[in-house]
Amino acid sequence: MDNQEEKTSGSNLKKIAIAVGIILLLLTLISFVGSNVGAMIFKTKALSVFAVGKPHVVLPAEMPFHGVHLSNTMLTSFITILILMLLFISAARKIKLVPSGLQNFVEFFYESLANFIEDTAGTEYGRKFFPVCATIFLFVLFNGWLSLIPGFETIKFNGEPLLRNPNTDINVPMMLAVISFCFVEYWGFKAHGLNYLKKFINVGALIQGFKEMFAGQVKTGLNNMIMGLVSFFTGILEILSEFIRLISFTFRLFGNMTAGMILVMVAIFLVPWVLPSVFYAMEAFFGFIQALIFSGLTLCFLVLAIMSHEEEAH
């Protein structure tokens, strides 16, 4: 009998799912037909509910306040920062040995991140790297997720959107890249002192080769000189890669986030209902992934910087 009940409830669920699917499909079609694009295709008049303005992409952050140099991305990052601060301060203010409520949630967050970082960098360095990596992660993540709140980018002020995902403002990813770069170099120098420079300016073998040449050991000298030249160029490549990281960091985040923003915009323009939800879900996922990549790569470069050169050579 139980089995039968299960069967009937299962078939009921199936029916409900099919019904919901059909409704969603109908909504999609209706919104498509009623939108500006549908009106163009079917030569009808667009319904005002579905008539979304043509998307126009503006890469620089808009300045909604005339005469004040305050971009909408800046405003949003204020909100992100406020939320993060409130979240962590209120969780840590009444911190107890036996956690409850918000503290539980924040601790879970903290521990997952700390485990990720300490697994990569080891416990000792992991704890030192944690604040920067975690803050980058949280900042990027909350910037991305905040902009997914419905209506976020549609609030207008002086004809410009009042709020905008800070990750889509090139200044923010670049700022994060610079922070990451500085932190990496700082730890490189801290771990190796001036020896850290040897990774980039590698002329030891070259000079050794010259010396041997003048001392008359032509063969070994020549050998060493060639090896020295190779390592010298490797050093230059290292310098280059260090700066290329800056650019790749910047444009990876900026590009992904901006592309997401444009994708959602276009989806809303084409099919105002249902379809954008799919892209919203994707954006939620990409926001997380980008945050993880940014902080994860920073962590990787940190680990590379503190590793001894001998170890790296193997």
Binding site: M85, F88, I89, A91, A92, R93, I95, K96, L97, P99, V106, E107, Y110, E111, A114, R127, F130, P131, A134
Partner: peptide
């Protein structure tokens, strides 16, 4: 205000 107290308590 966030990471340090949490680290300590953990």
């Amino acid at each position: 205000f966030g990471f340090k107290p949490i680290r300590k308590i953990l």
